[in-house]
Amino acid sequence: MGGEQRVSAWVASQRAKALHVGRYEAAVHNMLRRIRDQADQRSQFNLYQVRLKPSVVVREGWLVDPANFVGDVVLDEVCPPGVDVARYLNYHEDPGGLSLALGRNAIASVQRIAVPLPDTRDGGWVRDAVAALEGVSDTAAPATGKLALRMRPPSARAVLGRQLGASLADRLPVNLRNQFRSAAAFAEGEDPERWARRTSGLFDLIDDPTSVLAALDQQDPREV
């Protein structure tokens, strides 16, 4: 497919791309969007806190979102010589917020935690949800007639799980509700307690960011 020269050119093009760094809201929005659009419900996500070098030069003003249709930004196109960081109006994650396009050399250190956090503060909701889910059948009713040829109806447990997830979504800002419903979707055969803890943890990312950021601050910075 072109040999080493083609591979080297591809590597150079990848290294020329800017890194995207957004606010906390943008990170959560992007995670929920990926879960909905890319079927990443069971993927492990991480939240990063990035510290920039004190010497970085930030481009004056801000740009209209410069990303192409796959989200790539060529660093040299937004950060001319002598500039390390460019601010741009984000159209995709936390629409209307400002994000940064920068190169790796602008980063001093990073901190990371896995999200959602393993400990959820809303233990009451988790406990009640698990009890409700374990109280109904996880076996789907047998389909009859034409339905049997097309699909298997969901179990009572799966239906209840989706209702519980939707009830949490209704407590969130309108622009995040549909994405949260997708992220909190209950799959057939899923363990009720694992689902409930994960769903409550996702909710806490939006409803209680203070505790999440505190956990992030406690991590040892890792130099880049």
Score class of each variant (00 low, 15 high):
residue 71 G to W: 09
residue 40 D to H: 10
residue 88 Y to N: 08
residue 49 Q to I: 00
residue 71 G to V: 08
residue 50 V to F: 03
residue 93 E to G: 04
residue 89 L to I: 12
residue 72 D to N: 14
residue 59 R to T: 02
residue 95 P to R: 11
residue 88 Y to L: 08
residue 90 N to L: 02
residue 82 G to E: 15
residue 59 R to N: 07
residue 60 E to Y: 02
residue 55 S to H: 03
residue 44 Q to V: 12
residue 62 W to R: 12
residue 89 L to E: 13
residue 70 V to S: 15
residue 62 W to V: 05
residue 67 A to M: 09
residue 81 P to E: 15
residue 43 S to C: 11
residue 39 A to L: 12
residue 86 A to K: 01
residue 76 D to I: 00
residue 61 G to K: 11
residue 95 P to W: 04
residue 63 L to Q: 09
residue 72 D to C: 06
residue 48 Y to F: 14
residue 51 R to F: 01
residue 60 E to G: 13
residue 90 N to R: 08
residue 54 P to A: 12
residue 68 N to S: 10
residue 95 P to E: 12
residue 91 Y to G: 11
residue 64 V to L: 15
residue 71 G to C: 13
residue 41 Q to F: 01
residue 61 G to V: 09
residue 67 A to K: 12
residue 44 Q to I: 04
residue 93 E to Y: 07
residue 88 Y to S: 09
residue 86 A to S: 15
residue 61 G to H: 06
residue 82 G to R: 03
residue 85 V to F: 10
residue 50 V to H: 10
residue 58 V to K: 08
residue 77 E to R: 07
residue 86 A to Y: 01
residue 41 Q to C: 11
residue 55 S to F: 00
residue 55 S to K: 10
residue 42 R to F: 05
residue 87 R to W: 05
residue 46 N to W: 09
residue 97 G to H: 14
residue 78 V to H: 01
residue 87 R to D: 01
residue 66 P to S: 09
residue 95 P to I: 02
residue 68 N to I: 05
residue 52 L to V: 07
residue 68 N to P: 12
residue 93 E to F: 06
residue 45 F to R: 11
residue 78 V to E: 01
residue 42 R to A: 15
residue 65 D to M: 03
residue 88 Y to V: 04
residue 56 V to G: 14
residue 67 A to N: 07
residue 50 V to A: 09
residue 58 V to L: 10
residue 82 G to I: 03
residue 73 V to N: 04
residue 48 Y to I: 02
residue 87 R to Y: 04
residue 43 S to V: 03
residue 51 R to E: 14
residue 49 Q to S: 13
residue 47 L to V: 04
residue 40 D to G: 07
residue 87 R to C: 10
residue 85 V to N: 08
residue 93 E to M: 00
residue 93 E to I: 00
residue 63 L to V: 05
residue 45 F to K: 12
residue 89 L to P: 11
residue 83 V to R: 00
residue 73 V to Q: 05
residue 78 V to F: 01
residue 54 P to I: 09
residue 81 P to M: 10
residue 82 G to D: 15
residue 94 D to E: 11
residue 68 N to V: 06
residue 40 D to S: 13
residue 43 S to W: 05
residue 43 S to H: 12
residue 79 C to L: 07
residue 90 N to M: 07
residue 91 Y to D: 11
residue 44 Q to M: 05
residue 46 N to R: 12
residue 78 V to I: 13
residue 86 A to L: 05
residue 76 D to H: 06
residue 88 Y to D: 08
residue 86 A to Q: 02
residue 49 Q to K: 12
residue 88 Y to I: 05
residue 78 V to W: 02
residue 39 A to P: 01
residue 68 N to K: 04
residue 55 S to R: 09
residue 69 F to A: 14
residue 83 V to P: 10
residue 57 V to N: 08
